[in-house]
Amino acid sequence: MKSSLIILFFLLFIDAFGQNSFDEQFRLAEELYQQENFFDAITEAKRLLFFDESGNYNYDAYNLIAQSYKQGAKFSDAIRYFTLAEINARNKDELCKARTDIIRVNILRRTTNRALKLLDSLQADKRFADKKDEITYWRGWAYIFADEWEKASLEFAKVDSAKELAVLTKQVDEELYSVTMAKTLSYIIPGAGQFYTGEYLSGLLSLGWNVLWGYITIKAIVDERIFDAVMVSNFLWLRFYRGNLQNAENFAKEKNLVISNKALHYLQNEFSGLKP
């Protein structure tokens, strides 16, 4: 009698802790996510959440839905579900993870100010004092996506495990052209800013036009035809001079975009560390 009771109890215990339909449903959603079938993963996780009255799966299912939306570049939906995951977090680690995920999505969609604000609040929270390196790491990434490579480099330098990123971002920062320098050079000598960015032909053309209109203006002054000089300088020379400044600025920005994109391309495809 005693042994049969023990066996019965054992069977019941195993059965009770065995996989139930809700576990299976969550596993199905996870499998679909692993197969990169994000649409169906979201459907199945939503189905689980809809029928699950216990709330046991809330954090995991919301997190899975959010990750799926993120993979599909539906960033606003991703943030909505990460926020729900945050609300349903069962412990400090889950809370930190959900908040970090929200920050990562903000970094990806380039809402940098929001990302930095959230990082500040995470840093100010004493519960996450041990996550200092992680917070600094994501701050570095936020600066990368905001095109502030120097600040990114300074942040990564504070984290031991991010030395590779510190070097890379510093290198990119050194490669970038100074937009102010390009404009200032063109202020002083028309075309010089274009030369600085490597656009020699454009620089020569700019210089040529400005010399021509400058000469005609001065010639008019010498001929004592001041009104002619004013009209030529205002409508022709000044236009070409301003165009030269704008041109130099645009070239510097375009070149910087190429450099930034090249670095981001490398980070996306070659960098093996943690990315937003």
Binding site: F13, A16, N20, S21, F22, F51, S54
Partner: peptide, 12 residues
């Protein structure tokens, strides 16, 4: 055990 561990119908 049977009531506490099985809050939901396991064959839903």
């Amino acid at each position: 055990v049977s009531t506490a561990v099985k809050p939901q119908d396991k064959t839903f």
